[in-house]
């Protein structure tokens, strides 16, 4: 969400409980409107691009008659607005259409693939946060030391390497050379929890490293900024040790920018997942999007893209809401 929204409630001395609720309701209305606009936009782009779904499906060899028949069957002869609202009406009832290639409802297809992508993303975020937070904080605590320098170089490297290449290197090392890990594929959760988790481990590391690089740098900068503020200096002049001041005062207050970046990074997490799932042959949503592209399954593509965009928007909304709970100035106002 835009920076302006954050700064507009940066000093809400008078923010009471009801105001909080009103604020949340207003934001939620904004979220719904944004989602509607995104769906309309994706619908419009699919419509404006040359070649409609019917001609894409039939290919260049189709006769005008078969094309017209299919267009009629798919409802493509209706005006744009009629089609959009028909689609929207079905979508709110959970009907996102039927895949051309799989001949199954798209909603079910997406749900099935989410069972791979969501655990993968959660594992990746967990790994990157548990690597980046300690590194960033320690690096800030020992500013300008050799350790700080090494962490700086390593995080620069993490940011620069493409996640999917890290995936290839991990396969090269752990699967091809050492033979410890599967080179790809997914056994399915029914085949065993640990077996499936093992299949997700290397892809999650590939996805996590670039994230961890960004987060480490943001954590370090943010902690350093807070450390130079008055209340931390006061705490230290009271006789608190450097370490207590760091972990008790600086770290909690340094988390706001870290959470912001984590939210903004979500777009890149999704883009990374599309690539990493293809490297490791994981039957996730990203792989589905890619397969739908090569099979020209427009309905699936439209919905997967819409789903990903919606996910990013909802995620940003949640981060925005999270500010209300982690920014102590806001809590003080609401008390």
């Amino acid at each position: 969400m835009p920076e302006a929204d954050v700064s507009s409630f940066a000093f809400p001395e008078s923010l009471k409980g009801q105001d909080m609720i009103a604020l949340i309701v207003r934001r939620f209305a904004g979220l719904v409107i944004t989602l509607l606009i995104v769906s309309a936009l994706i619908f419009l782009v699919m419509d404006l691009l040359p070649g409609d779904p019917a001609s894409v499906m039939l290919g260049t060899s189709a006769t005008p008659e078969t094309l017209a028949a299919l267009q009629k069957q798919m409802g493509l002869d209706q005006p744009l607005l009629v089609r959009y609202f028909a689609w929207l009406g079905q979508a709110v009832r959970g009907d996102f259409g039927t895949s051309y290639t799989y001949s199954v409802p798209v909603a079910g297809l997406i749900a099935e693939r989410l069972a791979v992508t969501v655990p993968l993303a959660v594992l990746a975020v967990f790994l990157s946060v548990s690597l980046a937070l300690p590194l960033g904080v320690i690096s800030a605590g020992k500013r300008n030391s050799g350790l700080d320098y090494v962490v700086g170089v390593v995080s620069q490297l993490f940011i620069a390497v493409p996640g999917f290449w890290v995936g290839l290197l991990l396969i090269l090392l752990f699967s091809v050379t050492l033979g410890w890990m599967p080179a790809g594929g997914f056994p399915g959760w029914s085949a065993g929890f640990w077996l499936s988790l093992k299949a997700l481990l290397l892809p999650a590391i590939a996805l996590a490293l670039p994230q961890a690089g960004v987060l480490t740098r943001v954590t370090r900068t943010s902690v350093l900024e807070v450390m130079s503020e008055d209340y931390v200096r006061t705490a230290r002049s009271k006789g608190l040790s450097e370490r207590t001041a760091l972990w008790l005062h600086a770290v909690p207050n340094a988390m706001v920018p870290v959470v912001t970046i984590l939210g903004l990074q979500f777009t890149f997490l999704i883009a990374g997942a599309v690539l990493v799932e293809n490297v490791f042959n994981l039957p996730g949503l990203g792989r589905l999007a890619y397969q739908a592209l090569s099979q020209r399954d427009v309905v699936v593509m439209q919905n997967v893209i819409l789903f990903f965009a919606g996910l990013v928007i909802v995620m940003n909304f949640l981060v925005d809401m999270l500010y209300l709970f982690i920014d102590p100035r806001l809590r003080a106002g609401a008390r």
């Binding site: 969400m1 691009l49 890149f268 592209l293 427009v298 593509m301 893209i305 990903f308 919606g310 928007i313």
Partner: peptide, 24 residues
Amino acid sequence: VMRACDIIFSIPPILSAMLFGAFI
């Protein structure tokens, strides 16, 4: 305009490339 920017920003370029790629 900034809302519109948020919306565009919510679609990763890999996905919009797939969208464009399918047609053009």
